[in-house]
Nucleic acid binder design. Structure first.
Length: 446
RNA sequence: GCCCCCAUCGUCUAGUGGCCUAGGACGCUGGCCUCUCACGCCGGAAACAGGGGUUCGAGUCCCCUUGGGGGCGCCA
């Protein structure tokens, strides 16, 4: 069977880390299986969906590297949903209800108070034609519910194994709103059917929904797809993830300077039995993807761990992968400079910081080593400098001063860069150059 | 309130009744690598939530408790 999956966000907000994980699992599975990846905008909620979010979602997905093979949006398929709804009404599976939202809320509260599950009482089903006509005459408009068969629905979930949901314990889902617009369930099932979706991959918050959806597929005469429900992310404390837990949107993460591959690596490996580590390419992530590796328990989203993955990704990144971005940041020095500083980066923008340290101006830190630094300045070899200049120079400084180890090197680093830590000076020194090096060793800011 | 799921080092996890004096990765940490950080190599500390069962034998099976997650929408 050929694989087609879909990622179906509703354009009511930005893509966040949770969404991203779902998108990634879908995309990875599609690539692994040689299948197709459909991006479907679930925009049936006209009040909350916006074109701006729809664009942002596509932009963020592209940034991450998740190209889609197919694209669709539900707002353009309403005629199709209308036709299906007519069929379901004719079959007696879709029935009219007239309670207002407030009345339903009261019913639920009453049930809860009596210790009962808040399930719809199917009052709509008891209405006669006369009742309905009377309600309509009062100006009431019907919303429509899907009549569930009171049975156990079973499926073999690709990550959770055998699942069973008792539909007798569920409310008949509302498929059509009072204003005639559609809720998520019907368009989603109809689209999955029409697009030939083979695997519905989503978060475990949809587990209970799956049973009514399977019944809907069957009511449509369709064979339900396979289902895979991954666990959700929680915050560092183990609680529900919310905006207060940091930069959760892809947009925020990009602005914080995280590399797309770092975000993808983290999102694709957290909650799996593979180690959380940077992958330089998507194909590396595709190669190791397997539903069997997904854990059934929630995983903690830790922004600090993401930052660590980002740093380690950069430490191993080839110059070619960042060349364009370095130019944009105003960082020169080519590959040699990149290789000199990449091990000291947290984000790519830090490369600019080191470039500025090389080119100045830098306030040298001399302390009480003025005499020593001045002597070292006098021993600076003539240019041109290369990777060996540093060791030639420090060897002669060591000989002249009898210093070695920390006493030999530390004052030079402080004078040359103004700080105690940084890239290896053997590789970094040529970018400072003789003129600046001599000035800084003599305490001058250049 | 009711239903479902989950529970191993700080974190992500391996573990499908004896191969587990519980393995790996990240993090932390000691050492080495003629400076720091990072890299690399060699070490170290660090976990089966609690209580009952079943069994010759339980991290692994069952029950209860506790904790966490999800669901019970005219949201998706």
């Amino acid at each position: 069977m050929s694989v087609t999956v879909r990622f179906a966000p509703s354009p009511t907000g930005h893509l966040h880390i949770g969404n991203t994980r779902t998108a990634l699992v879908n995309w990875l599975f599609a690539r692994k299986m040689g299948g197709r990846f459909l991006l479907r905008l679930d925009d049936t909620d006209e009040k909350r969906s916006t074109a701006a979010f729809a664009e942002a979602i596509q932009r963020d997905l592209a940034w991450l590297g998740l190209a889609h093979d197919l694209f669709d949006r539900q707002s353009e398929r309403v005629a199709r949903y209308d036709a299906i709804a007519q069929t379901l009404k004719a079959d007696g599976r879709l029935y009219a209800c007239y309670e207002t939202a407030e009345e339903l809320e009261r019913k639920r509260k009453r049930q809860l108070l009596r210790g009962l599950p808040p399930i719809y009482d199917r009052e709509g089903l008891t209405l006669s034609d006369v009742d309905r006509a009377a309600l309509e005459a009062q100006g009431r408009r019907a919303h429509w519910r899907f009549k569930l068969q009171p049975m156990n629905v079973v499926w073999d979930d690709c990550v959770r194994g055998l699942q069973s949901v008792d539909c007798a314990s569920l409310s008949d889902p509302v498929l059509v709103r009072e204003d005639g617009s559609y809720l998520y369930t019907l368009p989603s099932v109809v689209d999955d059917f029409d697009h030939g979706i083979s695997h519905v991959i989503r978060g475990e918050d949809h587990v209970a929904n799956t049973a009514p959806q399977i019944q809907l597929f069957e009511a449509l005469g369709a064979t339900p797809p396979e289902f895979a429900h991954h666990s959700l992310l929680v915050n560092v404390e183990g609680g529900r993830l919310s905006k207060r837990d940091g930069a959760l949107s892809l947009k925020d993460m990009a602005e914080a300077g995280f590399e797309a591959m770092a975000v993808a690596s983290y999102a694709a490996t957290i909650g799996t039995s593979d180690p959380i580590e940077p992958h330089q390419t998507m194909s590396s992530l595709v190669a190791q993807f397997d539903f069997a590796k997904l854990s059934r328990s929630p995983a903690r989203f830790d922004p600090e761990e993401l930052a660590l993955v980002n740093a380690r990704l950069l430490h191993g990144r080839d110059h070619g992968a960042v060349e364009g971005e370095l130019t944009r940041l105003g960082v020169g020095g080519g590959e040699a400079f990149w290789l000199a500083v990449r091990g000291n980066l947290g984000t790519l923008a830090d490369a600019r910081t080191w470039w500025d340290v090389a080119r100045g101006p830098v306030e040298p830190v001399i302390g009480d080593e003025a005499e020593y630094c001045a002597a070292a300045a006098g021993l600076l070899p003539p240019e041109p400098w290369d990777g060996n200049s540093w060791s030639q120079w420090t060897a002669s400084v060591s000989e002249a001063t009898n210093r070695k180890g920390r006493a030999l090197f530390a004052p030079l680093r402080f004078a040359l860069t103004g700080q105690g830590r940084g890239p290896e000076l053997a590789a970094f020194l040529p970018f400072i150059g003789r003129q600046r090096a001599e000035a800084r060793l003599n305490g001058r800011k250049v």
